[in-house]
Design a protein around this nucleic acid. Structure first.
Length: 341
DNA sequence: TTGTGTTTTATTGCCTCC
DNA sequence: GGAGGCAATAAAACACAA
């Protein structure tokens, strides 16, 4: 499109209503923005004159718009919004397929009375908006997962504290008896008391999920170190048999969190070599390979890249913070930071 | 009316793919 | 090298509260 008369749709006048604009030799505005379309690398762009000083209301009656005089005097102005009809058709088209092949672009432009370039720009901006929304949805899902997991974690912590107290009091009782009575009768009592402690251990061990993923060697080592630390803290008697490993519980929770995070974010975060978002679910409809929205649970095949970030971060977070569980607010702050960064 | 925040339309520059 | 995509950004249009 060279400079000259451009066909433009009149806002509020329906898709078929055209406006004719006088476009001077378009000098592009410095930097982004500015009104109208200009030439860029051979692409047609719309150039609009500036500074007529008279504004036409967004919705103007068709009668007004049909008056040639009106156009001549009022129209060459700033950028103009598309009509609701135009937007509706564009939205429908976007729902069908969020990418625009040249034929479809031309056809849409013809139907809407727009420049193909305008259609392309609209799709581009629409994809950007969709991506932003998708990011928000992913964040909400992630936050919900985190909140649920945190509640779960709090319950487990409370159980843990209660059982620890139980173990300590039983141990103390045992030691008292050993000290006061001594001899065979105390040993008998102790033997009677111990199964209860073992039961506690056994029930807790059932609660603790084994890490299902083959953890990295470093993480395993860290896990073992923390396990030992926990045992050290608790070994007040009974040969350390009464250890309830909070860290193991948290490690299990961490794995569950990583799994939750993984399934939540994989719909957005880019994966593999191709960083195009559609590989992680971009697009309103999945039209064959490489395009459109994926359902929430069809990401299994593409989770190599998509899940990496979340899983690693979550594992690192829990591995590094399991012994800080007393300070829950700090943890919350850190996980929030992680989610925002 | 005016100031301010949000949305929409469009440009620019860079990148990737063919 | 051209075409097309995306991120960042500008600026007009719009919404809304004071």
């Amino acid at each position: 499109m060279e400079s000259g008369r451009l066909i433009f749709n009149a806002p509020g006048s329906g898709a078929g209503q055209m406006l004719f604009l006088d476009c001077g030799a378009a000098g592009g505005p410095g930097g982004g923005g500015g009104g109208g379309l200009f030439h860029r690398g051979g692409r047609p762009m719309l150039g609009l004159e500036e500074g007529r000083g008279v504004k036409r209301p967004f919705f103007t009656s068709p009668d007004e718009l049909l008056e040639e005089e009106y156009y001549d005097e009022q129209l060459p102005e700033k950028k103009r919004r598309l009509t609701p009809e135009q937007v509706h058709l564009l939205e429908r088209s976007f729902e069908e397929e969020n990418k625009l092949e040249p034929e479809r672009k031309t056809e849409l432009a013809r139907k809407l009375g727009l420049q193909p370039r305008q259609v392309a720009v609209w799709f581009q901006n629409r994809r950007a908006r969709w991506k932003t929304k998708q990011l928000e949805r992913d964040f909400d899902r992630l936050k919900a997962s985190f909140d649920a997991l945190r509640a779960d974690h709090d319950v487990i912590l409370q159980d843990n504290h209660r059982l620890r107290s139980q173990v300590v009091s039983l141990t103390e009782k045992l030691q008292e008896k050993e000290a006061t009575e001594g001899g065979a009768s105390a040993a008998t009592d102790a033997a009677a008391a111990l199964p209860a402690v073992d039961d506690v251990k056994a029930s807790l061990a059932d609660d603790v999920e084994e890490p299902t993923e083959p953890a990295a060697e470093e993480e395993e080592a860290a896990f073992e170190v923390q396990q030992v630390k926990s045992e050290d803290r608790l070994s007040t008697g009974s040969g350390g048999s009464a250890v309830v490993d909070t860290d193991a519980l948290l490690y299990g929770a961490g794995c569950r969190f990583a799994a939750a995070v993984d399934s939540s974010v994989e719909s957005y975060f880019p994966g593999g070599e191709d960083h195009h978002y559609h590989d992680c679910g971009m697009g309103p409809v999945n039209h064959g390979a490489g395009g459109g929205i994926q359902s929430d649970d069809d990401g299994a095949g593409s989770d190599e890249g998509c899940s990496y970030y979340a899983e690693e971060e979550a594992a690192a977070f829990f591995a590094g913070h399991t012994h800080h569980h007393a300070d829950d607010d700090e943890d919350a702050g850190q996980i929030s930071w992680w989610m925002w960064n």
